[in-house]
Design a protein around this nucleic acid. Structure first.
Lengths: 332, 332
DNA sequence: ATGATAATTTTAAACGTTTACGAAAAAAGG
DNA sequence: CCTTTTTTCGTAAACGTTTAAAATTATCAT
């Protein structure tokens, strides 16, 4: 049984309301008694009970971050960003890994509701997440990352995914490629849709044909990219260049290419999107379109806190992606 | 204002104690009223308030996982392991990133105390963490990972780090290397100490000289390995083989070697410890000594839950590391 | 019908805080 | 020295649950 405010009140010879106020630096408490009470509290090893406080104050000072895949280095980086801001403002963050599974996502959303978190940042598995959240009337503020929401009353921070797809593809075109394929995930995410549209636009602008390959399973793993490329070689439809929807997929593609006698970038050029840390290893040296991961985390946390404090109604942020030229793409 | 048990009681025409029991499937509630109440609860969109419950039940069903570096893919993997077990048992996990900083670690420990988490799994920054935790008389169960604790009443799960160091070094010796250096982090962690001792033992058993290089800053980043290797070339003391304390360091070393004209493994052999996912990319192909990351997470969570339920007093688990031969080490 | 027993429900206290409101004490003003 | 104002503190209710104990109702054998 840990020591409570009442215990302190007893030894200090004051009411426990006074103790509460003293500990919270309430102005109506005499400076002297404040000191005394604080001293006693420290001596007794008092630790405030956040759950009791949460009950009466109706907030928990916890926010949650839902991400689909903690093993994809992209997400830890944004997690660091949100934690950075959250911590500086006295918030703790619950990190939940949905594992690219809508079921898990929904379960977590319910748990978080029960736990009365003050706000949620969510990198949705699919666009349906948004509908689920709205239907469930989550009274908590939510900010989405990696997915535009087509509703001006909701908040999100994304990069301009269209531009990302466009930049990647155009770079390949500029290098002289005419046969450029796209490999990416399911179509239930604006991030995917936008990137694919950027890809299409860049190609049609140059009167080139598109070749879009969609990963069947609803997750982004190296293996998914690997398998798609395998099919390409099986079907003898290997392009001269590939834009991968993200770096993880790109790595999988490179892996498959490598294993089947294609040398990157001599035989095939590959470009990713995200700029995960390991892409920069000189042995990998992945050319990619970067997004500011840490900043995405910070921004979204900042918005969430503003939403919580009520200082804003909603906010939508679109960050700029930028090309990082490394070694996996070459002039044809 | 969300709907409470009292609201339900009112419309159901029963006392709120009955509602509570009905919702919790208490045996002495009539099956019929139970159904009725549950139905009403659902209709009204009731979500139990976990913080109120936590207050009276004196548990939160939350555990925390403290890790030093979420950007090191090793930790997300163990995080997945603990989350796996935690979730299956109705627990949520707080993921806290200490960033290799003892201050942060202590801050988090306090916060977790206030929040009344039911237990903590901690990958300590240094061995001192243990003393801090004991001094603070954390009344919550704690299990350490990655660090043996020299106290039979406390719990941990580690790999046999001595053996890991030994296996790595001996493998290099078997390949014919005679000039083998060790590069690793600070000496305030048993994991480090043990690995280094395993390294020493393997060398002294073969009457070879040791060459131990310690990273100055207290963190494990690629850059640390990079810098140490730079010094080696500056001092013209480049060995023929290096055992890195972990894969991240190994990658940094490879990077530095590469950039300075050393081809791996032709000019220098490098072996890591951990087996992070990206080491297996064919372009990297890092030879390493693996530890069962996911299992470490699962095991530690399992122990923690047993500790919480009181079914055990303490438990210490030492898992076996195993060599994974890939392409960064060659016969000399 | 009558106790006795079992099944079901209610009452009330508790968990550890915060906080509106009021009371007492101290300070200020006349 | 009395009133007014200000400062400081205490009382009590509230937050939304759970749960022991008491109370009520139903069941059943006699």
């Amino acid at each position: 049984m840990s020591v409570t405010i009442k215990d302190i009140a007893k030894v200090a010879g004051v009411s426990y309301a006074t103790v509460s106020r003293a500990l919270n630096d309430h102005p109506d408490i005499n400076e002297k008694t404040k000191k005394k009470i604080k001293k006693i509290a420290k001596q007794m090893g008092y630790t405030p009970n956040a759950v009791a406080r949460g009950l009466v104050k109706k907030n928990t000072n916890m926010i949650a971050l839902l991400i689909p895949d903690i093993s994809n280095p992209f997400y830890p980086e944004v997690a660091r960003g949100v934690e950075d801001i959250a911590r500086k403002n006295g918030y703790c963050v619950f990190l939940c890994n949905t594992n690219w599974d809508e079921q898990n996502e929904h379960k977590y959303l319910n748990i978080l509701k029960e736990r009365r978190v003050d706000g949620i940042i969510i990198a949705p598995v699919t666009i349906d997440t948004y509908h689920y959240v709205s239907k469930e009337k989550a009274d908590v503020p939510v900010v989405y990352i990696g997915n535009r929401i087509d509703d001006s009353s909701s908040s999100f921070v994304v990069i301009d995914d269209f531009k990302a797809g466009y930049i990647a593809t155009e770079y390949l075109v500029k290098l002289g490629h005419r046969n450029i394929a796209f490999i990416g995930g399911h179509d239930r995410t604006t991030s995917h849709l936008d990137r694919i549209n950027g890809y299409k636009r860049a190609l049609t602008e140059h009167k080139l044909e598109t070749d879009i390959n969609i990963i069947k399973d609803y997750s982004f793993k190296k293996e998914s990219g690997y398998l798609i490329f395998l099919e390409m070689v099986k079907n003898r439809r290997v392009p001269t260049a590939i834009v991968a929807e993200n770096d993880i997929i790109a790595l999988g593609i490179m892996e498959a290419a490598e294993k089947h006698g294609y040398e990157v970038p001599r035989d095939i050029s590959i470009i990713g999107i995200d700029d995960i840390e390991f892409g920069s290893l000189s042995k990998i040296n992945l050319t990619t379109v970067a997004q500011p991961k840490f900043e995405i985390g910070q921004k979204s946390a900042g918005i969430l806190l503003d939403l919580i404090s009520g200082s804003i109604e909603s906010k939508q942020v679109i960050l700029e992606p930028f090309l990082i030229v490394r070694g996996t793409c070459s002039r044809i």
